[in-house]
Design a protein around this nucleic acid. Structure first.
Lengths: 225, 225
DNA sequence: GTCGATTTCAAACGTATGTTTCAAACAGAC
DNA sequence: GTCTGTTTGAAACATACGTTTGAAATCGAC
């Protein structure tokens, strides 16, 4: 078996299974049998299941954060001085994601779903790992968002960023099975690019919504100006 | 021990642990020891762990869907004939959630987080259970959304609903530990009501965003072929 | 108080998990 | 070909899980 073809086979299988079923619900035996590899190979090559999870993330997150950094470089250079707009920033992000060289056709959606899981499944070790490996790109994105929405208070911006992350991670992480609940026989097959193209305007509009009203409109129970 | 105080103690403990750690990551032994109850009690009173999960959801979802139905009744009556607006519909939903009688101060956020988990963790049995128990309220909400956004194509509406659900479920399901990634020392304690008050305008604005552009703005920086 | 049904309890069961072991197979260098 | 370090393989290990068991305790009705 070539070099450590084994390592990649494990990563491929793990990536797909994790994306399909989550971390805790995916056993090493599922992974190794899908990868047609001996069970012990995971612990031999990675050390532990948690380390394997980290490796799966690192494999796509490291090149992605590099791509993203340079996209931000380009963007800031093009805007020289003036801060990029919200749309520009969001597009830079999604473009970087979409443009990433994919291992296969499912590449991006797996990528997105894993990110959603990382955020959603409370795996302490994963959070720590991601935090200490990729804070730089993340902080930079946050800074751009801040500069692009100077009209928002810190608190508003904070929550709206949460909402954006939520809509994104969640949409991407919702399994196919899940979509059936909504999928009212539209039956349209949609690429990740198309989803992103729909998502970005939604996010931008939400992010730039009129002032948050803390008290729901008094008069009629539920009318908002 | 009174009646089946045991049942409620199990439900309380399970609810909180599930919300904190997810379903697979919470063992019956954790639940029973937190509830100060014998391990076998869960299987005795509920039959299985999955049935316990269902019971946890049913305990708050059943009264909630009733509240929601009557909120929708009120709303449609008040609008007699004309379909309620998007804002009205969204407010009716969040008001119903917020107005629910809570067992404790953490009531709503646990409720929300559980909903997020239900949507996010791919537990087939849960999805089936929720689907067959609460489709009615869900479908009605969907119908109201449809009538409130006649300008949207079915496909656009479909995706934007996904985005809304995502922002909501995800925001609510993000654990406190998680928020620290973003929480740039704002240190503000926020109630669920306040979050909802911020979320609704965000969602409404996103939902009513200008036409989805499938090709990102041409002139601008990030051009796509 | 007695009886019958319900509920609790400690212990065990069977199974699945992540991990370790150690011998066999293999690789490349000499 | 032989030797050395690396990788694979089958099997076992220890642990944790959900579930079951059967006897003890508890309760309500008579």
């Amino acid at each position: 078996m070539a070099q450590s073809d084994t390592v990649d086979r494990i990563l491929d299988a793990a990536e797909e299974l994790f994306a399909d079923r989550g971390f805790s619900e995916t056993s090493l035996r599922m992974i190794t049998s899908k990868a047609k590899v001996n069970l012990a190979a995971v612990n031999y090559h990675f050390g532990s299941k948690n380390a394997l999870i980290h490796a799966v993330f690192a494999r796509f997150l490291t090149p992605f954060s590099a791509t993203l950094e340079s996209a931000f470089d380009d963007l800031e250079e093009r805007c020289d001085g003036k801060p990029p707009t919200l749309n520009q920033t969001l597009w830079a992000l999604t473009e970087s994601a979409v443009r990433m060289p994919q291992r296969n056709e499912k590449g991006i959606s797996i990528f997105m779903r894993l990110l959603g899981l990382a955020y959603t499944q409370s795996q302490g070790h994963l959070r720590k790992f991601l935090e200490q490996e990729y804070t730089e790109s993340f902080s930079r994105f946050m800074r751009l968002l801040k500069e692009a929405t100077p009209q928002l208070s810190s608190v508003d911006r904070y929550w709206r960023i949460q909402f954006m992350l939520g809509a994104t991670a969640f949409t991407m992480s919702s399994s196919d099975a899940l979509r059936d609940i909504l999928q009212n026989k539209l039956g349209v097959e949609t690429t990740v690019q198309e989803i992103a193209a729909r998502l970005v305007p939604f996010l931008a509009a939400g992010m730039q919504a009129e002032d948050t009203v803390l008290i729901p409109p008094a008069g009629s129970n539920v009318s908002v100006a």
